[in-house]
């Protein structure tokens, strides 16, 4: 969300950090390569770079990052479900038979986003020692995106995992089947509306578990 981004950048400016030229250059290079498909970017100076691209140029973005920015190391790929959990989003999700609550307005993280599901892939340059997180929004009606296997063969298993956990279809993936869960498993466990049954069955004993600090006396 842009608001969030701007506050963060503001905070960084207050602490006196300089704008990160190297990462700015990376973002500019990607923007050049992608044109209109480059949606947004967010930089935390001396820390990290987030880039959001349109779904259609997902593969192009990864290729550009690999070939132009030198991000040859494939770190990981996953997805984020931005839906606020219908079972409560905090430790208060302890009540019996929780009714799905009215969904909070979906607020999203760095580099923004509008949809519920967002793809995330992280690449890393072993020469510049800098990482890059590329995001892409998936429209709710059509959870599919092109596979990155052609760019990074290591994405194979990560995409299988994302398919299994979030139900995102990767078009062009040769072998989209369960990786962790048994073949007949139904549902997508990492979606926020997939209930964690252990919590429904038994209250979590750790809810008031606050540890003392070293040297602190118990009250």
């Amino acid at each position: 969300m842009t608001q969030l981004s701007s506050t963060e950048t503001g905070a960084a400016a207050e602490t006196g950090a300089q704008p990160d030229e190297h990462r700015e250059a990376w973002a500019a290079q990607l923007a050049d390569a992608l044109g209109d498909d480059f949606v947004e970017h967010h930089i935390i100076p001396e820390s990290d770079l987030w880039v959001r691209v349109n779904r259609g140029s997902w593969v192009v973005a990864a290729t550009a990052a690999r070939d132009q920015l030198g991000c040859v190391f494939f770190d990981w790929l996953s997805a984020i479900d931005w839906l606020p959990s219908p079972y409560g989003r905090d430790m208060d999700a302890q009540e019996d038979n929780p009714q799905p609550k009215a969904a909070d307005p979906t607020e999203q993280g760095y580099a923004g986003g509008e949809t519920r599901f967002q793809m995330v892939v992280r690449l890393y340059s072993i020469t510049d020692h800098m990482g890059l997180t590329i995001k892409a929004d998936l429209p709710d009606g059509d959870l599919s995106i092109d596979t990155l296997i052609g760019v990074f063969p290591g994405t194979n298993w990560h995409e299988r995992e994302a398919w299994e956990m979030f139900g995102i279809h990767f078009s062009g993936h040769p072998d989209l089947r369960h990786i962790y869960l048994p073949g007949e498993f139904q549902g997508n466990p990492l979606r926020k509306d997939f209930p964690l049954l252990a919590r429904r069955v038994k209250p979590w004993p750790g809810i008031v578990d606050v540890e003392l600090f070293p040297g602190e006396e118990g009250s």
Partner: peptide
């Protein structure tokens, strides 16, 4: 506080990292 962060270290087996998305909650 709300935000996203990725931290990775050189673990015995290789790079291990955690990508944390926070919305300002306890969890």
């Amino acid at each position: 506080p709300a935000g996203e962060a990725y931290a990775a270290t050189e673990n015995p087996l290789g790079e291990m990292g955690y990508y944390i998305v926070s919305k300002g909650d306890l969890v």
